[in-house]
Design a protein around this nucleic acid. Sequence first.
DNA 1: ACATTAAGTGATT
DNA 2: AATCACTTAATGT
Length: 239
Amino acid sequence: MKHLADCFIPIYLVNVNEIKNDMEPINSELHKLVRSHFPSLNEPKLVEEISKAGQLMHAKAGTVMMDYGRYITMVPLVISGSIKVVREGNDGGHEIFLYFLKGGETCSMSFSCCMASKKSDIRTIAEDDVTFIGLPIKLVDEWMMKYKSWNRFVMSAYDNRMLDLVEVIDNIVFNNMEERLKNYLIARSEALNSKILLGTHQQIALDLNSSREGVSRILKKFEKSGAIILGRNRIELNT
DNA sequence: ACATTAAGTGATT
DNA sequence: AATCACTTAATGT
């Protein structure tokens, strides 16, 4: 198992220097990607602006894309792959899993951070190889007033995340590990678009701020009830 | 064959 | 439900 530190690449720090203006040509590839993956952004001028100012970027699986305390310079529009968003517990040390970002989504945390030009409160890690469009935060702010569809897009991003977070809180408050683990498996399966999840019980326990034994026991229970099939480093979800 | 790492189990708090 | 101590099973060298 690869350690995160080994593949740390501060991709948000790459290409920060050139925020070019209207002289920039329209990138037709970006134009196409926005239209196919973000149909709700339906104002032609907005799509045009995104294609001019955005940059197509990649992150390999395991890359820490954003970390606590770093300033956010770009807002990502996720094209493909998925990004795990986690938060460090108050007491330090432990991390808890919040949600996954998938294609067609964006990071709502980055909006709140960039508007107040604050440091990040969260850490994001590429769960698999990720492709996304990086948008300079300066424009993101401008567009809020200029484009209705952008405004709606940002708002609904907040809304969707809110629902995820409420679920997380619910499950923590009620100390319901079974629910939490179930949700986690489903979320991860959907994010990766695969019924087969690779990784150790220990990793899952870290994500959920639980213990390896606890996770193993619940997984075993799920297996007995026929919901999943277990293997070493492998969990297969049944439908 | 041996070492290492992942997973399972029972007892204790 | 977390932690400990220990066993069993799978994999890598």
